[in-house]
């Protein structure tokens, strides 16, 4: 069963504009994850938009994308400055860059890490990072997406696992449309990716 947070957005999922920031490293499929989640959202009747932040792409460098979904056409044509969901695909990128800039209060933060959410939060607030988390009431969860990807796909490409974690953590999308777009995108190679998404959705740990 999806381990959705009791206060998750699912109840109001269809009624407002949701802004999601994806962050990771070049090569992990950050842009693809944003695109595929957008596609899944459109299948579910949302108006969606995925805008990658492009720079001189290098494997391993910071890579980020904006995903928006809402009930009606989205007029914003820029990166999100105030995301309500943060999806971090890489276990260490957030220790180097402030991927939390501009997060709204009560944002949902999903980290790919073996650490417990309490440990991540302590580090985000502790002062040892180049920045401090600027919001008080956010909800933090963690999932070992790298472990799942290595076990299921044999490669540390975490985007499809994190798509499942997104579904579980936010309740904005069910796994069904995500599975459908993964099947469409990956064809014969879809089933391990679907398995990774499913496993990550079920493996989310929330702060106690």
């Amino acid at each position: 069963m999806p381990n959705t947070h009791p206060e998750s957005a699912s109840a109001s999922a269809g009624r407002k504009l949701h802004e999601i920031r994806l962050a990771g490293r070049g090569g992990q499929g950050v842009v693809t994850a944003g695109d595929l989640l957008g596609k899944a959202a459109v299948r579910e009747g949302f108006w969606a938009q995925s805008i990658p932040t492009f720079g001189p792409e290098r494997r391993g460098a910071l890579s980020s994308a904006t995903l928006r979904m809402g009930p009606e056409e989205i007029l914003l044509k820029c990166s999100t400055a105030a995301p309500g969901v943060l999806l971090v695909l890489d276990p260490t990128i957030w220790t180097q860059f402030n991927v939390t800039a501009g997060l709204v209060e009560e944002a949902v933060l999903v980290f790919n890490t073996t650490e417990a959410p309490e440990e991540v939060e302590a580090r985000l607030r502790g002062g040892a990072l180049p920045y401090r988390l600027g919001v008080e009431r956010c909800r933090i969860c963690t999932v070992d997406a790298t472990g799942i990807a290595l076990a299921v796909l044999g490669r540390a490409i975490t985007n499809t696992a994190m798509m499942g974690a997104f579904c579980g953590a936010t309740g904005l999308l069910g796994l069904e449309p995500v599975e459908a777009v993964l099947a469409e995108r990956f064809g014969k190679r879809a089933s391990p990716n679907i398995e990774a998404a499913r496993a990550a959705r079920d493996a989310i740990r929330w702060r106690a």
């Binding site: 695109d35 459109v42 969606a48 938009q49 995925s50 805008i51 492009f54 044509k77």
Partner: peptide, 9 residues
């Protein structure tokens, strides 16, 4: 990029 690489319905 803003439109060339952005996906929309």
């Amino acid at each position: 990029f803003i439109l060339s690489h952005a996906s929309e319905p």
